[in-house]
Design a protein around this nucleic acid. Structure first.
Lengths: 333, 333
DNA sequence: CTGTTAGCGCATTCAG
DNA sequence: CTGAATGCGCTAACAG
């Protein structure tokens, strides 16, 4: 039971291949009523399905987008993937998902193989360490949109959270001090992490509060307990803490529980990224949510702009989204 | 700056297309040292990348797997996707992810378009309502593996949790009664839900406990609070409860919090699906975990068996995985 | 070791 | 309205 081709259908219906092709492309004007029926029947009988690869080869378009996430398992990636899927589906596009695991070499490999697969565009959570490659892509006019992270001096639009504002919101929701902020590894200088720490410093300065670097910490996930230990061993332990992403927030919850730290009495907490548990923790966590669906929509819209019109409408590289403040009980103000 | 083809490279290097093709396929034996260098240079200069579509067309293989999940956002789907990605990546395969949203019509549409895209195989969380289509696929000898759900009378292997055992574990971890079990919608008779309810009944019977259907509930996510209300309004409210998936467990946590139900004193709880929060809830939740990585590995292995050898090694349709019991403090035994 | 030839399945002229 | 011819980019014999 081999796969039927357009030629088989043509033979079966006693017409020519091009007539069948017309039919498939719904150009019914160019054929008789009965011809149409015969073709329809033949397609049914042979279980014929057009070969998308062949069409793509001819039409130089694959209707597929390559998506490279830094880590599928992270909550924000998942939300974005979910949002992108919905948008792509509307346009009849499919997506190939790859995982860079925040390793530049993997990212490079994936970009290259996706290129070989002739994807029509990319959505990438960039590692940031493949600048030459990003530049080549732009020069070859390949549609590409970054998400979550921004790479300077590149004409590639980035869709990201207004991290400064998020930290301003966070800081303004505490009525205690000193405040600490913790994020995950800074090895790759990943935009949201860098910006959130910087936003923290700025928010303090704005309030004429001293910026003490020992309260501004970062490290691999497994180092976080140690970091918390150090923080709470300071002469003046933090009274408020900001967890800048889901990883940190989870580790912090674990730590708080283990050490029976009372929230908000001993420690007030603000976390970035809405998670299922933030609402039913004791106490529920004051959270700053990223509007992931809007962000995915924006990314998809930008990408299609470039794919369909060959260029971005606006000469704008930065699309910042408003964080959503969810006041709950881990802060008091 | 148009894309270079193999012909451009050949011209640039003063050799024939087929020599270049040999080079690309690493059949270096058939060419001179300097020829090789010249080709390498030409490829560099022209930024040449082989067109994977063209190769696929010729080779009748796309090195891509279609993955259809019931809902990307569910924790188990995400974990499986993550596991599959790792396995596929090892073999140089990519995956196209689609969302059926548990709608049979969407599932059908996705299967059909993925077929047109000539995917080499499928991994599907089946809705169960497209039996004719599943059957056609099997008859056309298309590699396909189901996950999480089992469809009877089909020669399609399914990778799933040993749900009976999971419920036996759950029931045996309580030292109170009556016990209740809650799952999400049963409209589609989705395997894990059906089996978990049935496993619950069986576990009770085994212990000569009465099976009372009013303690065995199911409903849409938004109906769950109402269902909990009803359960706790019974003459004898449940003293122990099993949440059969992450949705139910989250709704239950919300409910328990809202109504200040004391766990485990007033209500003992066991949940299925390990989640970030199970460990740091108060109290930590006794959990039954699905070995998602092993399951993804198994699914991938089966699929590749069929892809590479044209047949499954074993005439076996059911691959059951041992649940992992994580005793924590929401149960007392 | 290298070049020629002939498709893979489809879409698109361009004559009939 | 239909059919023949051509090519998308690559691979795979098969000669040389």
């Amino acid at each position: 039971m081999k796969k039927a081709t357009i030629a088989d259908v043509a033979k079966h219906a006693n017409v020519s291949k091009s007539t069948v092709s017309q039919y498939l492309n719904k150009r019914y004007e160019y054929m008789g009523e009965e011809t149409r029926k015969k073709i329809a029947e033949a397609i049914q009988e042979l279980h014929y399905r057009p070969n998308f690869m062949a069409r793509s080869l001819k039409q130089q378009s694959t209707f597929t987008i390559g998506v490279i996430v830094a880590n599928i398992i992270h909550s924000f990636s998942t939300k974005i993937i979910n949002g992108l899927e919905a948008e792509f589906d509307k346009k009849g596009f499919h997506m190939i998902i790859c995982n860079s695991a925040d390793e530049p070499s993997k990212e490079k490999k994936h970009i290259e193989t996706l290129l070989e697969r002739q994807v029509d565009g990319f959505v990438i959570f960039p590692t940031g360490k493949n600048e030459a490659l990003y530049r080549t892509l732009t020069m070859q006019n390949i549609p590409i949109v970054f998400i979550d992270r921004f790479i300077e001096k590149l004409e590639i639009p980035s869709v990201l959270l207004d991290n400064m504002k998020a930290m301003e919101m966070a800081v303004s929701s505490f009525n205690v001090h000193p405040l600490a902020v913790v994020t995950t590894s800074l090895d790759l200088q990943i935009t949201p992490r860098v910006e959130r720490l910087e936003g923290f410093r700025l928010a303090l300065q704005k309030r004429n509060m001293e910026v003490l670097e020992e309260y501004i910490r970062h490290g691999e996930t497994k180092e976080l307990p140690q970091i918390f230990d150090e923080l709470f061993s300071l002469a003046t332990p933090p009274k408020g803490m900001i967890a800048t992403n889901d990883r940190v927030s989870q580790e912090l919850m674990l730590y708080v529980k283990k050490h029976q730290i009372r929230v908000p009495d001993d420690l007030q907490i603000v976390v970035i990224d809405e998670m299922p548990y933030t609402e039913f923790m004791t106490p529920p966590l004051t959270t700053i949510e990223q509007p992931s669906d809007l962000m995915a929509k924006q990314a998809a819209a930008l990408l299609f702009e470039k794919i369909e019109m060959g260029t971005f409408k606006e000469m704008k590289n930065l699309y910042r989204f408003e964080p959503i403040f969810l006041k709950r009980d881990s802060t008091l103000l």
